[in-house]
Design a protein around this nucleic acid. Sequence first.
DNA 1: AAAAAAT
Length: 591
Amino acid sequence: MDAFELFRKLGAGAKFDLKRFGQDAVRFKVQLKHVADDCLFAVLCLTEAGDGKLKDTGGNCISWTSSLEGKIQNLPSEGKEKNSLKRLKHLHQEKVNRIRSQHRINVHGCDVPDPVCTFEELQSEYHLNPRVLQNLRDAGLNSPTPIQMQAIPLMMHSRELLACAPTGSGKTLAFCLPLLTHLQQPANRGFRAVVISPTRELASQTYRELLRLSEGVGFRVHIIDKASLAAKKYGPQSNKKYDILVSTPNRLIFLLKQDPPALNLSSVEWLVVDESDKLFEDGKTGFREQLATVFLACSGSKVRRAFFSATCTPDVEQWCRLNLDNLVSVNIGHRNTAVDTVEQELLFVGTENGKLVAMRDIIKKGFLPPMLVFVQSIERARELFHELVYEGINVDVIHADRTQQQRDNVVNSFRAGKIWVLICTALLARGIDFKGVNLVLNYDFPTSAVEYIHRIGRTGRAGHQGKAITFFTENDKPLLRSIANVIKQAGCPVPDYMIGIKKIHSKVKRRLEKKPPKRSTICTTPRFLMKKKGKAQGRKQTARDEQQGAKKTKEQGLKKKNKTKKDEGTEKHKVTSQKMGSNSSGAELKK
DNA sequence: AAAAAAT
């Protein structure tokens, strides 16, 4: 590295506080005169600008490069100079602290590498492929977001981490770039990186992001879209020419459980758990056990794990502290808060019927599409769709009981702007990045503050402005207080009485998450005109209704759940927490 | 409650 390069690195656009450090800098200039040209130059760059600010030479901050560190170690060390260098280093640390606090980056852990302030630094410091850098530029991504500034260097140093950053703040890129850089070259050893997502829609979004970033680099990025096909592709007979795999957990498990296993994860070096708190959800129907199976399958000794989410439970943090190696946790801003780029409003609608009236009102008054409408169950999504499909607006519905084809079509049409109003379940609550959603409507009250944060996070992304309206009725009172608090914390006005509502027991909160209040059917047809049960009801039956109705009855048989599992579930929970306490060796989330 | 594998 020549002197100019060092100058660039050290001085690059530093908003160096000369008032504060000017004296120091001048002193260094004198003291370091004979130490080394490079260092002298570095210090000069801090003093040269007379106007109190350093000139912006393209970057945004000083980077204490590893190469500089090495250089300084090798310098002839006589007391005076060494001292000066110590001061210089201290100066640098102050700078780093300032950058962190400026971007609200909070880190906990040992030996945390400095944040990077430009993508170019990733090339000089961590050998990011120039083509990837070009792909970033082509995508209009010019500088890293706070989570990227800190999480990328951490992963590049192979550090296991738990990262919490707001919705729409660039978490996906924060783990994708290190994966691409870390793997260096395509290799034929089998998958070396795995990303787990809670929904297929999110998995496919991450997959497409990886494809876009790695274009022209030659990495083989895969997604399991059809498990049956995947079995052939990744099985023992395959050529192992693949690098990164993105999937939902159950599809992986399906392949792992084949005999012989249709997938081998023993070469995995990076396991990224996106929406980690979701994937840690416990219980018979939770993801946790699936995640545990995947962890166990990544049996290589080199495997590193990274957890990302906008929200984090104490449970996840506890687990990470106990099981990850030399954990670093990164938080951007305060944990579990909503973004402040969304204008949030709570709207009292009286009763269930009041919701439909209010919804029609919003539509009638004219709204700026696209809009996302969240309801609490698949059944209610269908009902609301039936009510709105004749309003003369482009409305569609998505939930897990629709076919993969339908789901893909809906997402694509919504992205293309062909759907104005998309009714959805929690399926779309997390991670999905629709550009320019103008309004999120919580038709049904969210089942928790966390759920609320994720839902409204579908708008107001990447610094854009968004709006969220949340309907509530008398029935929603138990959770009103905690949601109102989230809104208040994000800087939006809420009536005082809501904050004053008595706190509910956390046990009740948990129960509400599992069993939201029962709501009356969404239907404007008078009851006495309706048939008793089954089939789509009411006057407005169309071919589309029939299709959905038929599908529903067919699936009802499959979906019947027996109720004897409850005890079994709590038993499992006990085993799990015991295990987590005693087992520090590995990743086991289950026995 | 929702999500998550196929066939």
